[in-house]
């Protein structure tokens, strides 16, 4: 029911800010930009800081800026989680989510939290969990954790 509510709501561009805490860098990476989901399988992330970049994820391929040759998303488990989360939630396709992840939904319609954990070992090596939380039909926050302690905290601006 909740998924349906979300699915109906989002077909517009949303603004986000993201903080990535990475073990290999001396300080966290702060990014911001917009996210847009285009049915059926395209997710466009436009970064305006720290650098101008457009990432298009179409199906299983990631296209950076205007390049025509994409790379398989499978190389980036974090991106898979992001795409699956968005696609699954926005298309109301719970089965899709359940294929790749174990899912746990907490809270009620007003304030909810969906936690995804990868099922496949390949994914688990690079991704510990994705927690998506929101209010009603709106995403508020996506927290992604990697097994090595790396963490991304993305906030969707109202």
């Amino acid at each position: 029911m909740l998924l349906k509510t979300v699915a109906h709501a989002v077909h517009r561009k949303v603004h986000f800010t993201e903080v990535n805490h990475l073990a290999s860098l001396k300080y966290p990476v702060r990014t911001r930009g917009t996210l847009e989901y285009v049915k059926p399988d395209t997710l466009v992330m436009t970064q305006s800081a720290p650098r101008q970049a457009i990432y298009r994820i179409v199906g299983d391929r990631l296209y950076v800026n205007r390049t025509r040759r994409g790379v398989p998303v499978s190389r980036f488990p974090g991106v898979i989680a992001l795409v699956s989360g968005f696609e699954g939630l926005l298309s109301g396709n719970y089965a899709l989510l359940n294929h790749d992840f174990t899912t746990r939904l907490q809270g009620d319609r007003k304030a909810w939290r969906l936690v995804l954990r990868p099922r496949l070992t390949v994914l688990r090596k690079a991704l510990a969990s994705v927690a998506i939380s929101g209010h009603g039909a709106r995403f508020a926050r996506i927290v992604t954790r990697a097994p090595n302690g790396d963490r991304s905290d993305m906030r969707i601006l109202p």
């Binding site: 990535n20 860098l25 950076v64 980036f76 974090g78 990697a146």
Partner: peptide, 15 residues
């Protein structure tokens, strides 16, 4: 650039 992109989190072993 990759670490600062949405794929950054998956690139833990990149270095």
């Amino acid at each position: 650039a990759i670490l600062e992109s949405p794929a950054g989190l998956s690139a833990g072993r990149m270095l």
